[in-house]
Design a protein around this nucleic acid. Structure first.
Lengths: 244, 244
DNA sequence: AAGTGGTCTAGACCACATC
DNA sequence: ATGTGGTCTAGACCACTTA
């Protein structure tokens, strides 16, 4: 027993998705033309057209102007990992968050950092190192660089109370970015800051994010032991959005 | 200088996206009604309606029947990690793939596995352990369980030549799944199979995937050292697709 | 009751692909 | 030349929200 909006559009759409889902129509197979579906469902062309267009936009069909409509190739799979505010994440585990601010200052960019941010060497960058703790136990090391043009308030922020993540999220929206995750042996300094044993493997995440104007921030996140877990959801790859 | 399809629809759409992107219209702000946009652009209602509907489906607007249209809250960010066939991944690095098949048999499910697969205890499951190698050097340990009802050919497959990933991908499509990534110290057995030093941290991925009929496969993937890196892309979260 | 969005029709003209 | 999809119009009736 399912919800059934049972509009004409949804019946046409369900009919096509059923055929694809059951394997009756396979990738590359021709789908009935708009004219054929108009007749089969006694629908107007606008109705049929927008159903097909929507299914194409959702990645199930591939339409070619003048040629016809076929079943699209199955999308590859991806895992999605959500980005969370570290403070909310710790509190969601039922723990109290606190933070030790190790570094919070402006300093000139090194050559490598200047390349990463696509700015001139020696350009001042905001640098912060914060240890986030759950109930007084180190949970995550955050080592972050920010282009101060993007977040002018960064020097005055109280990083023990508010995460840089949330500060960045409430400013102008980011476009996209890239991320790398590795298993690493922590350096002596990391080990000291996170208070972990020398043999403890850590999960290191390095993330760069930008707007259309340029790189905004680069962060290295380090977690140890049983905190070093990421959970994600697997789904078909989302359809590429048309550029603006 | 940009591409401009310059249809009426795309001009209306671009106008609205510009207002949102520039911050002129913020989350929660009221968007002009269909009637207002019809007048502003001298467009018919169908044209305006489908533009607004499309923007809503893409997550930029939120429409409420009878109430009106507002700018949607910004979507949270996620990182996407693509799933690759291990053989293609190794060959993409310019190395030759080979594999050592350690285990390939049917055996009864343990109590924990039966719970994972939502089948009765002692139900036969297909179990495979394969070491994937790049130029004779161990690259990834694959320890996989499969419901044999889903992949009847699993016992006869030549796992040295074809990955279980590709076998699964070419059968009926999977719906979705879940994944966990951890930094771990390998067990003695893992260390032996992957030929790594005792102190070498490893990246462990555990993945369960299912169709609407049930769990299909559970796999544990283990990589060591500089192979233990995942690269992903950051983007706004995709909009939830309506259920079928 | 008035305003708003949800759905649908029956046309029209155009652009592109294929034969 | 024919068939296909791309876009658009000018209506219509309905359902939901708000007042």
């Amino acid at each position: 027993m399912n919800e059934r909006p049972s509009t004409l559009s949804s019946r046409i759409s369900a009919h096509i998705l059923d055929r694809i889902g059951s394997g009756a129509w396979r990738a590359g197979d021709r789908v009935p033309t708009e004219a054929a579906l108009m007749e089969e469902f006694a629908a107007s062309r606008m109705t049929v057209h927008h159903v097909l267009k929507d299914l194409a936009r959702r990645g199930y069909l591939k339409r070619t102007h003048g040629a016809g409509t076929v079943v699209a190739a199955p999308r590859p799979y991806v895992t999605h990992y959500d980005h969370h505010d570290i403070i909310e994440e710790i509190e969601a585990r039922g723990a109290r968050h606190s933070a030790r601010v190790v570094v919070q200052h402006l300093r000139p960019a090194t050559a490598a950092e200047a390349a990463d941010f696509d700015v001139a060497p020696e350009t001042p960058l905001f640098h912060a190192v914060v240890i986030h703790m759950a109930e007084a136990k180190p949970f995550e090391l955050e080592d972050r660089l920010i282009d101060p043009a993007y977040l002018p308030d960064c020097l005055r922020a109280n990083l023990a109370k508010q995460s840089l993540f949330s500060l960045l999220m409430t400013s102008r929206p980011l476009r996209d970015g890239e991320e790398r995750v590795r298993a690493v042996t922590p350096s002596d300094e990391d080990r000291d800051l996170l208070d972990v044993a020398p043999t403890q493997p850590c999960l290191e995440t390095i993330r760069r994010t930008w707007t259309h104007e340029g790189v905004v921030t680069r962060v290295r996140l380090l977690r140890a032991g049983c905190d070093a877990v990421m959970s994600g959801r697997i789904a078909p790859a989302p359809v590429q959005e048309r550029a603006r």
